[in-house]
């Protein structure tokens, strides 16, 4: 029941504020409360090389690049230090199986931390 209901509640709350796309593996806390899934290229690890001189998106010229926004907000918003430290981490590929599910449930069950068996990260992340 909760599994069916929560995605609706989550979407109703997060869509108006963050334009949430229900990827089911929310990383808002680490991206200055800016949703990377709203990037037309859905980039999870920073901006592409096509950002315009005025900081706007290559694809949607009238929209500020979400990674420019994320960077500004990470610096300026009073977010917890640990969240800010997560900004530079190498985020794994999106798990398409989680599309449409509640990231709240996936957070609690740690399902959103599951990565493919081969995935590993090297070096300092922060």
């Amino acid at each position: 029941m909760l599994k069916k209901l929560l995605p609706f509640v989550e979407h109703a709350l997060k869509a108006p504020v963050w334009d949430c796309r229900m990827c089911g593996q929310c990383v808002l806390h680490s991206t200055g409360m800016t949703c990377p899934m709203t990037c037309p290229k859905t980039l999870r690890n920073g901006p592409c090389g096509g950002v315009r001189e005025n900081g706007n998106c290559e694809v949607i010229p009238e929209m500020q690049c979400i990674w420019v926004k994320a960077y500004d907000r990470t610096i300026s918003l009073p977010l917890p230090k640990v969240w800010k430290e997560h900004y530079n981490e190498l985020r794994p590929p999106v798990d398409m199986q989680l599309q449409g599910t509640s990231s709240w449930i996936n957070l609690v069950t740690k399902r959103d931390q599951q990565v493919p068996d081969g995935w590993s990260v090297q070096g300092s992340e922060h």
Binding site: P47, R52, C65, N88, Q122
Partner: peptide, 24 residues
């Protein structure tokens, strides 16, 4: 890899290059 040194957000471009370096 490729990086654009001259596109916004300028300061962050260095960190993004380093992220690619750490990735391999």
């Amino acid at each position: 890899a490729v990086e654009n040194a001259a596109a916004p957000p300028f300061d962050y471009r260095i960190q993004r290059a380093l992220k690619k370096y750490r990735a391999g």
